[in-house]
Design a protein around this nucleic acid. Structure first.
Length: 411
RNA sequence: GGCCCUAUCGUCUAGUGGUCCAGGACGUCACCUUCUCAAGGUGAAGAUCAGGGGUUCAAAUCCCCUUGGGGCUACCA
């Protein structure tokens, strides 16, 4: 029975790197019909960030990465203490200024076969110092706590970030000291920022919550994250979570560190936006803009019209955030020449008897011909943006009166 | 510095000894479409597979060295 876990520490809001680790664990668990456990590792009381724990769960919930069991290490303090004392009794650990250190027996080699890349990794024990397992404040270090918990929780595969690879020998030493079976270790490469250093908040790495607020869809994020360092072979790139679960295998996970390039996420997000049906998109938009009265009321306009707008908007947005500029006009600053064009446009529009996209378009074309300009100027005049939803269609919906009002404002 | 991981187009990657003078995707560029911008379609540029040695009839694929990148080196995780 496969049992995997993620062990986030509530010291910050997860970014795409941490979250990918969670996702791979999840994919692996689902693929093997095993269990996925979340264990909050809050053993460093000093570094706890208020709200971080909540954010961790918020992200998992948003993405739909569901878990089967949940633990908090600070509630298990005594368990670790007992295990530390057990090692002291066995003379495998000793007290040192209020802390407890594990005694590392030198002259041995510690090794394991890592599931990522299926390669043997080995360390000589003499490069490992006697390390602290219980701090003087009574809390365990990660090393003790994770080993004890992984054993007690029957974790079969420890799938974690690459930054743990040099701590793994310590963990193996602990498993051996307790006489426990070891799990399979799989060390995922860390995701790098565009500056090629480990993704972290200091380098401006966005948290997943930021990405959510930027208008990325969970489906796109999941798909993108999944493909960072994992490839099931073949050319298929757009995959839903079910397909990923079906295909996921640790042997197809790369050992090299990928760089997070948001451009591809942008594209993928656009793809998901385009294939989404309007009903879902509407729901998503209302959630996303739940603080924006203008958008909210816009979304409540005649369903048929809205449907039509949504179809036009879909191909023009990469994120939900971009919807706003597509439908809400702003007052442009026009040059003298542009004002002349605006005037001509006003006149042409005024004479239209039957206001529809055909007549609007021919009026627009008339202006473009006589004034010899590009269409973008007409967009600037009527919407404040030099690009946007097709004017004939959107102005028809707006209506003649309102259109003329708008143009009048800028004259 | 020490230890460990790692190395294919700018980026994500396919590739596990011959079918690869290296395929796909993003991005970029061009053209088509066109009221703008997208989307869509077509096409192009882009990697002497980090460099150097081996092994082999044959290497992006195996081995070694060098170099680059990354991680760890806390009573942080």
């Amino acid at each position: 029975m496969v049992r995997v876990r993620i062990a986030p520490s509530p010291t910050g809001i997860p970014h795409i790197g941490n979250t990918r680790t969670a996702f791979f664990n999840y994919l692996f668990a689902k693929h093997t019909e095993g269990k996925f456990i979340v264990r909050i590792e809050d053993t460093d009381q000093g570094r706890i960030v208020p709200g971080a724990k909540k954010a961790i769960f918020e992200i998992l919930n948003w993405l739909g990465i569901s878990w089967d069991e949940e633990y908090v290490q600070s509630e298990r303090k005594n368990i670790y203490k007992e295990h530390a004392e057990d090692l002291i009794r066995k003379k495998m650990a000793y007290k040192d200024e209020g802390a407890v250190r594990f005694k590392v027996s030198t002259n041995r080699e510690v090794s394991w076969v890592d599931a990522i890349g299926n390669k043997k990794v080995s360390f000589k024990a003499d490069v490992i110092e006697d390390f602290v397992i219980l701090k003087s404040d009574g809390f365990p270090t990660y090393h003790l706590a994770s080993v004890v918990d992984d054993h007690l929780m029957n974790i079969s595969h420890v799938i974690r970030g690459d930054e743990w690879i040099s701590s793994t020998p310590k963990h193996i030493l602990l498993y051996d000291a307790f006489g426990w079976d070891k799990p399979i270790f799989a060390h995922l490469s860390v995701i790098l920022g565009t500056d090629k250093t480990k993704l972290s908040k200091r380098h401006g790495a966005k948290s997943v919550l930021d990405l959510k607020n930027d208008g990325y869809l969970k489906e796109a994020l999941l798909n993108f994250m999944g493909l960072l360092g994992w490839n099931p072979g073949g050319d298929k790139e757009i995959m839903n979570i079910k397909e990923m679960i079906k295909l996921f295998d640790l042997k197809d996970v790369n050992a090299a560190s990928p760089i997070f390039d948001i451009k591809k996420l942008d594209w993928m997000n656009g793809e998901y936006l385009r294939i989404m049906n309007n009903e879902n998109l509407k729901t998503l938009l209302s959630k996303f803009y739940d603080q924006d009265k203008n958008i909210l009321s816009y979304l409540k306009s005649d369903p048929k019209t809205l449907d039509f707008i949504l179809d036009l908007a879909k191909t023009r947005m990469k994120t939900l955030k971009e919807f706003k500029d597509l439908i809400l006009p702003k007052v442009p600053k026009l040059s003298g020449e542009e004002k002349n064009i605006a005037e001509t446009l006003f006149e042409k529009f005024s004479t239209i008897k039957i206001w529809n996209k055909m007549t609007i378009l021919s009026a627009m074309k008339g202006v473009l011909n006589t004034q010899k300009t590009k269409g973008s100027i007409l967009y600037k005049i009527t919407t404040g943006f030099e690009k946007g939803l097709p004017l004939p269609e959107s102005l028809e919906i707006l209506g003649k009166e309102k259109t003329l009002e708008r143009i009048k404002k800028v004259l």
